[in-house]
Amino acid sequence: MNRHIKISPDINITDQELLLLIKENDYAAFDKLYGRHWRSVYDVAYKRLKDQNTSKDIVQDIFVDLWDKRKSKQIIDLVPYLHTAVRYKIYSLLAKNKATPHFVEPGG
């Protein structure tokens, strides 16, 4: 069943509610979730890589994956999931030697 709900920018809806709507192919819910979290995902990536383009690519990859696998993903707590996904992407880039030499441990 495809249920599309018009989500106004000022509506108070939780991440879990948005994830449920996303599972039902709700693009507006995905846009709201992306708008709510893209910057923190980018900041986590940039803090470690110090590279804007690679950090933007990581954000895009994570959210594309979230949309592509929306039916099968079982996400309990979104923010830790997103931050773990960033770390995984960074480690994958490092393993493939595609990351910049500016990798920095957080807080360092």
Rank of each mutant, 00 (worst) to 15 (best):
A95T: 11
Y27T: 14
T100M: 03
I13G: 00
W38H: 14
A99L: 07
W38L: 04
V79T: 10
I62W: 01
N25I: 07
Y46N: 13
E24F: 03
L82C: 04
A99P: 03
P106L: 12
L20R: 13
Y88P: 02
V104L: 12
V104N: 12
K56E: 15
N97R: 08
W67C: 03
K23A: 08
P106S: 13
R36K: 15
R36Y: 07
F30A: 03
K71D: 09
L19I: 06
T100N: 11
I75V: 12
L18V: 06
F30N: 03
D77S: 11
T100A: 06
S8T: 06
D51R: 11
A99H: 06
P106W: 08
T54P: 05
S55E: 05
P9T: 06
D68W: 08
V44G: 06
R36A: 03
N53T: 14
Y27W: 13
D61A: 10
L82S: 02
D61V: 14
Q60I: 11
L21F: 08
A99R: 06
I62Y: 01
A28G: 09
D77C: 12
I90F: 00
S55M: 08
P106D: 14
I7N: 00
S55Y: 05
Y91V: 11
G108H: 15
I76N: 15
Y81T: 04
H37L: 04
I5W: 03
Y91W: 07
I58P: 01
Q74F: 13
Y46K: 10
Q60F: 12
K69R: 10
V44S: 13
I75E: 12
W38K: 12
I13N: 00
R36F: 03
A45I: 01
K71V: 11
Y34V: 05
T14S: 10
N53M: 10
D51E: 15
F103S: 04
N97G: 13
Y42D: 05
M1E: 14
D10Y: 07
I13C: 01
V64R: 11
D61E: 13
R3L: 09
D68C: 14
Q60G: 08
Q52A: 15
I7G: 00
H83D: 04
L19V: 04
N2A: 09
D43K: 13
Q52N: 12
I90Y: 01
V86N: 01
R3C: 11
L21M: 12
I58S: 04
Q60E: 14
I90Q: 01
F103R: 07
R3H: 10
Y91K: 14
F103D: 02
L19P: 00
D65K: 13
L66K: 06
R39L: 15
H4I: 13
D31R: 02
Q60D: 15
A28L: 09
L78H: 09
K6Q: 08
L94G: 06
Y46A: 04
A28K: 08
L19F: 05
Q52I: 11
K56T: 10
I22F: 02
I22D: 00
P9F: 03
G35D: 15
W67R: 06
K32M: 00
